[in-house]
Design a protein around this nucleic acid. Structure first.
Lengths: 131, 131
DNA sequence: CTTGACCTTACCATGATGGGAAGCCTTAGC
DNA sequence: GCTAAGGCTTCCCATCATGGTAAGGTCAAG
């Protein structure tokens, strides 16, 4: 299978497959005589694994760790669970931050008449006034 | 006032003040004979405005637009309000995405025994199995 | 006059991805 | 067998906002 077919089969772009190879996330693919990368079904499974981890927001480092544990048949599930719970903590931290931004803005938007006059509490707040 | 003092007074690093100047977000500062940038209280107010907008998650483009409206005394508050509501929509979209990731992971973590045995539903899910 | 703290510009790095160019290879149609 | 289209290769650049560092000029206090 060529890189394009592996990309279609896995949902990872050819560009990213090459990138994953250069950073050592996946082992370098075998090559044909004409230097084309060759992939098998196992490789596609690995790429799908990576794709799912990324979709769940795991960083490349976390994904790499998860991949290693996946391939280590004698792993302890506690190690996997720790990575996942740490990631949940990160996600919830980000959610809280974004939620605070949104709440502040919603309050300001609620106070803004939004007409053709210049008076605007949103700008007043950004300017740092007490009002 | 030198750039370092302006940085302290505004909460924006000297590095970022220079960057904002190069991308045209702020007008180039006057210089002393020895080529040092000089800032006044108005400049510090502008930098604080930018800092607050960034803290609320506005992009540089949005911040630039807000800055322009702030400085335009004949603005319509509707223009400000539109930028803010659009940004709230973006924020809520991101929150939803992150929340979905966290929810999925929480479910998986709940199902994982997290001991020294290898069996792990988190990896099983990432591998794409039906279970 | 020296020392240390500050300023200047210029370049590199981040993280994960996309885009494009230049050149080689393969496959399908004629 | 020839040609055109499309796929593959590597290499370089861009994103977005920020931080770091290095080499060199400037200023103020002792």
């Amino acid at each position: 299978m060529n890189i394009g077919q592996a990309a279609k089969a896995s949902g990872v772009t050819a560009k990213m497959i090459r990138y994953y190879e250069t950073i050592g996330l996946i082992t370098p693919a075998d090559r044909t005589e004409s230097n084309y990368r060759v992939y098998g079904t196992d490789d596609v499974h690995t790429l799908r694994f990576i794709k799912r981890a990324r979709t769940l927001g795991f960083s490349m480092d976390e994904t790499s760790a998860l991949l290693g544990l996946w391939q280590d048949k004698s792993r302890a599930s506690a190690d996997v669970k720790r990575i996942a719970t740490d990631h949940i903590t990160e996600l919830e931290h980000k959610i809280t931050e974004l939620q605070e931004m949104a709440d502040t803005l919603k309050h300001l938007v609620h106070c803004c008449s939004g007409d053709d006059r210049p008076n605007c509490p949103i700008l007043t707040q950004l300017a740092g006034a007490d009002t």
